[in-house]
């Protein structure tokens, strides 16, 4: 009886499983097969003998990592920068998307949406150059304003205490418009009749946003937040690398810049792999537990 039930399930839903085949094969070949490369983290990579022929060194790379005084600073900086990115950078596109959603003039909405996403296409090299000029203590616009008000010039990019704020502001500047797209797409799924009946009930604009639009995109918000948590130790390399200098290392040195120096500059490939593996494990543990918590609390989750 049970066996036939199972068989019936498979026959009935065979297509669903057939649909899954190409995607799963893809993941297996292009994502899981290369994953065996993480063994580099436990080996001393020798160029001639290749990955498999190199000698095992066990957990030596991880001991080095946890013994390094830099590790704790890098960890703290990465986490703090991520928290800034989540606290300021995460809500920004939601707010802008809500604002755009309230625009009644279609042409205005479309044009402003298009303008908002322009900075996404300007590479960090160019944007960083613009920022350095903007914030220049001698010739920058910002300091012209400050000095014209009678204060001394501020050396923005040389003060560790400003670094996170500058990076997060720059990221919002570059990505906020791009980030709205996903929420605007989610908002298209909201039933328009909800707004109509709310209007009849006399709800204000802000009430309609609060009680209809925000719950309508809540799933998307939760999922994006969960994914961001999984990448909590990824802050983005280029913007930090282009804007930091020895004076701001104290707050600016993050995992990406650390891995860049040890991997590409010092050529310690297995150590760099070990650092990457550490980041992945942290991210995975976080995303699994956060997903569990989100499912229990809100009923919304990735899986």
């Amino acid at each position: 009886m049970q066996a036939t039930g199972k068989l019936q399930y498979w026959i009935r839903h065979r297509w669903l499983y057939i649909f899954l085949i190409p995607g799963l094969i893809y993941l297996l070949v292009f994502k899981y097969v290369p994953m065996f490369g993480v063994v580099i983290a436990f080996k001393e990579l020798n160029l001639i003998r290749g990955i498999w022929g190199s000698d095992w060194i066990g957990l030596a790379n991880f001991t080095t990592l946890f013994d390094s005084p830099h590790f704790y600073r890098v960890l703290r900086n990465s986490l703090l920068l991520s928290i800034y990115q989540i606290v300021w950078g995460f809500p920004a596109p939601i707010i802008v998307a809500l604002m755009l959603n309230e625009v009644r003039q279609m042409a205005f909405k479309r044009i402003s949406q298009t303008i908002l996403y322009l900075p996404h296409f300007i590479s960090w090299v160019v944007l960083a150059g613009i920022l350095i000029n903007f914030l220049s203590p001698s010739s920058g616009l910002v300091n012209h304003l400050i000095t014209s008000m009678g204060y001394g010039p501020v050396r923005f990019l040389m003060e560790p205490s400003y670094f996170r704020s500058i990076i997060v502001s720059a990221e919002i500047w570059k990505e906020v418009g791009w980030g709205t797209i996903i929420y605007l797409a989610a908002m298209t799924g909201i039933d328009p009749t909800l707004y109509e009946s709310a209007t009849i009930d006399g709800a204000s604009r802000l009430q309609r946003i609060w009680y209809i639009t925000i719950p309508g995109i809540a799933t998307t918000v939760v999922i994006l937040l969960l994914l961001k948590l999984g990448n909590i130790l990824d802050n983005g390399f280029e913007q930090v690398f282009l804007l930091y200098n020895p004076l701001t290392y104290e707050t600016a040195d993050i995992f990406e810049t650390y891995t860049y120096r040890i991997g590409l500059q010092d050529g310690r490939l297995s150590y760099a792999t070990a650092v990457g593996l550490f980041k992945s494990i942290v991210g995975f543990v976080l995303i699994v537990s956060a997903n569990y918590a989100a499912r229990k609390i809100s009923g919304k989750s990735i899986w």
Partner: peptide, 11 residues
């Protein structure tokens, strides 16, 4: 030049 600690050679 106070920008020296921030800029690269080309700038």
């Amino acid at each position: 030049d106070p920008d020296s600690a921030v800029i690269d050679r080309n700038t």
